[in-house]
Amino acid sequence: MKDKHALISRALAIGILFIMLLLTLFTSFSLLTIWFLPIPLMYLAARFGWRTGLSGFAVSMLFLAAICWNLQALLPLFLLCMGTGMGVAIQKKKSAFATLLTGSLVNSAVLIIILAISVFLFNYNPIQSGVAYLTQSFNETIKELGPSLSAQNLVTIRQYKSTLSDLIYLAPSMLVLVSVFYALIIELISLPILRKLHVTVPRWVPFRNWQLPKSIVWVYLLVLIVRAGQLDGGQGTTLFNIVINFEYILQVLLAMQGFSFLFAFAHRRKLPLVVPILCSLLGFVLLEMIRILGIIDLGFDLRKRIAEKH
């Protein structure tokens, strides 16, 4: 009886996956279904083991190849690979962060393979094309606004131009962040659903308790020192590419630490949840201040000192 029930569950999961693939590829529901597409494979791998998960992935790839054999199939491929990897992590009783890491690594690997195929087989680099398009649009806008620009506007324009020129070198870190972002959203959506389906899933640590290693501060300081030595004539070198990507990722991590501190502070003071949320929304505008707050929190145990005073 149990075997029959398991067989029916697997067949239903595959059937739902096929329906969602059709809805994603051929209907206007794709903006909704892409966020649920990995869940059937996550369910198969988490509930019945990695062999069942891989079998489901193989069947879904055959179905995908039969109904769609063009660039439109890349997004479902990306999501199905991630769903299988994260489902295996859940089946192995990994933590929520380890599951997120697994999904992020799978995403990064798939994106790298797709990018390599695009560059080496089709001689098309989507990153370079995107930067070129942004630069062209920016230059056209500046020409139209030329006479009305103030001195302060010119300073902002120079900063924006510098950011545009750095985008081509930031491709690796942007790829990593995109991978983490997609894995995080999928995990936040899928874990409650899998729990309803009687799958044992990990639970998240509250955001207010997220804490980076203190060594991050020293690594960031070292990166800033090296970056300062690369300002003149270093652009485009291997060292420059490594440093600028490390700097970007570390800035994101330190900003996350700062946002986490806001939630921890509000929790200590028993403030309503809406207070840290509003402060976080404002913090996206003043991101440099949030990053500094994260550095202070790590370097001086700021939340621990507040806890002791409270």
Rank of each mutant, 00 (worst) to 15 (best):
L7P: 00
T24I: 03
D232C: 02
N153G: 11
V176E: 04
N107I: 08
L32P: 07
Y169M: 10
A11K: 06
L271C: 07
A13E: 01
L254H: 01
L44F: 01
R269I: 07
F57I: 01
P192S: 12
Q159G: 06
A264H: 09
F18G: 00
I306S: 11
L224M: 15
P76F: 14
C68E: 06
T33P: 10
L101K: 09
R291E: 12
T141M: 08
A66V: 04
G85A: 14
Q128I: 09
W50V: 13
Q128N: 11
S179K: 08
Q152I: 15
N139D: 12
L212H: 01
S60Y: 00
I193N: 11
I292N: 01
I19V: 15
L25H: 00
F138W: 11
Q136D: 14
K304D: 14
V275C: 11
L80I: 14
R158I: 04
L12N: 02
S162Q: 10
T237N: 01
Y169F: 15
S9N: 08
G229W: 11
K92I: 02
I277W: 07
E140Y: 03
S260H: 03
K143F: 02
I113S: 09
F300G: 03
L22G: 02
A255L: 03
L239T: 13
R203G: 10
K214I: 08
F181C: 06
S173A: 15
L286K: 06
I127S: 06
L62W: 05
F63D: 05
R269L: 15
V219W: 08
S148N: 08
F18I: 11
M86V: 10
F63A: 10
L21Y: 00
A98V: 15
P172T: 04
A45K: 00
L175P: 01
Q91H: 14
L32V: 15
L100V: 06
N123E: 14
S108F: 15
P206M: 01
S260P: 02
G236L: 11
R47P: 00
L302H: 05
S148H: 10
H310L: 12
Q211T: 05
Q72C: 01
S162Y: 04
T238F: 04
S9I: 00
L184K: 02
D3C: 03
T102E: 07
Q235M: 09
A228S: 15
M20Y: 12
V110W: 01
A109W: 05
A132L: 10
F265R: 06
R195A: 12
E140T: 02
G49A: 05
F120T: 07
V178N: 09
I249F: 05
F259I: 14
K270Q: 12
G294D: 04
S137C: 12
A183N: 11
S104P: 05
V178D: 14
V275T: 13
Y182W: 12
L197H: 10
I277A: 05
Q128R: 13
H310R: 09
S28P: 07
Y169E: 13
Y220D: 06
D166P: 05
I290T: 04
I112N: 08
Y124T: 01
V106R: 01
H267I: 00
L194Q: 00
I225H: 11
M20T: 07
S148P: 02
E144A: 13
I157S: 05
S148G: 08
L278E: 01
A6R: 13
L101M: 14
Y43M: 02
A228M: 13
L273C: 07
A46F: 04
G130Y: 12
V106Q: 08
L101T: 13
L7A: 13
I127N: 03
G233M: 03
L298M: 11
Y182S: 10
T141D: 09
